[in-house]
Write a protein that binds this DNA or RNA. Structure first.
Lengths: 218, 218
DNA sequence: GCGGCAAAAATTGTATGCAGTTCGAAAAAT
DNA sequence: ATTTTTCGAACTGCATACAATTTTTGCCGC
């Protein structure tokens, strides 16, 4: 489960760096991770290394067996596809629940946020849009008023985030993404459960296509 | 996240005991967990305690913020209801996916297992049925051929298991549960996606009713 | 008496040392 | 030459000691 990193503790720093190294394939899958070696590599003691490795294991990035060196998990394309698939279903469920379980304030917040994102699209500000997009989906998670569902969806999205790399960089994609958001929002406001769910599914299917391209180009 | 407990390492032992203490309410929600105190309470050093706490945090049983004592997460009725809700949806999704993604061998295994469970029902053997029920649902998780979906469903079920207490003890419940299983199996074998999903949802709604009774009697 | 500040106490984060287990290599037997 | 056994090295699991940070407590000023 991802932690905040407000006051970067050493463990969190190591988690971050190791995560990047793994998802960027700088460390090949199947590689055994030696605690002492990592320790002197990162200039830290074994203790924070161990904590970091536990967190990575919880994230599914590595596998650890008792008394044995942790192995970098095979983040194969198959597994990523599966996760994307489940994420789409989770978010579709969130959108569906939003139709019935959202408070008026939450509905207004979602609508307002979506309108605000229009400026990022017009300016072609990719960084802003990226951030706004995350907030958009977070608002939908919140709208379910189901903490566990929110937690699962967030966890899945965050775990997938590092693998998405440099996608939706093209301004054209921004406009399309925004249009899809529009569909989702209107469906939710209309209370159209199946419409909201399918709109969300389709929205995420686009993202998944990008993954397939990345997979193909290897 | 599956954890073996073959060669009980001290950390795993502590994880197990703490988990039981938390879900059985022996430790009240909101209680701060002091590492040193736990250490001398369990007769262990702080190191394995820390590792155990990380795992519990990953399981969502406790919450930890940097430089602050971990707090036992509130497992209130509201949260439990939410988790049951999500579990129903996850399993409904599993059943739906089984209709399309199951192999022939998996279909046969599910059918055979279901038939075998009839004897437990006839004999009124609650313990056997309980075990068979778990296996039944596990077979459906497997049938999705989606490791991540399986992981989420299993995790949710396991986390909920301790709270289900002494339900479905009455032999009458066994027969009813079995009939519901029957519906699910036939829907899956027929390839009826929506039928399988709704049958599963209804099957779990029964379970949830029991929870409500437990909640009410407190 | 009340609010802010500072120092002390308590608790988490980190480092290091030791013991137990696993894995590999060398040696012995077939 | 191949297989088995044994021994050693390396690494993980655990314990303890130290550093950093937070919280509490006591004091001073208002």
């Amino acid at each position: 489960m991802p932690q905040k990193q407000g006051k970067t503790t050493r463990t969190d720093s190591i988690v971050f760096r190791l995560t990047q190294d793994i998802v960027s394939k700088r460390i090949a899958p199947g590689t055994p991770l030696d605690e002492t070696r990592l320790g002197q590599q990162f200039g830290a003691s074994r203790t924070p290394i161990r904590e970091a490795l536990r967190q990575l294991a919880a994230s599914g990035l590595i596998e650890l067996r008792p008394h044995r060196s942790p192995l970098v998990a095979a983040a194969d394309i198959v597994r990523l596809r599966e996760m994307f698939d489940v994420m789409a279903e989770l978010e579709a469920l969130c959108a569906q629940r939003c139709c019935t379980d959202m408070s008026a304030a939450q509905r207004h917040a979602l609508e307002a946020h979506h309108r605000d994102m229009a400026t990022s699209v017009r300016e072609g500000n990719v960084a802003d849009y990226r951030q706004g997009n995350m907030a958009f989906h977070a608002l939908i998670y919140d709208g379910t008023n189901n903490a566990y569902l929110k937690q699962l969806a967030l966890m899945t999205r965050e775990r997938l985030a590092p693998h998405r790399g440099v996608q939706l960089e093209a301004p054209a994609r921004l406009a399309r993404s925004y249009a899809e958001h529009e569909e989702i929002v209107t469906a939710i406001l209309r209370g159209d459960q199946t419409g909201a769910a399918s709109a969300m599914r389709q929205h995420l299917a686009i993202t998944q296509e990008t993954l397939e391209q990345i997979a193909a180009q290897r």
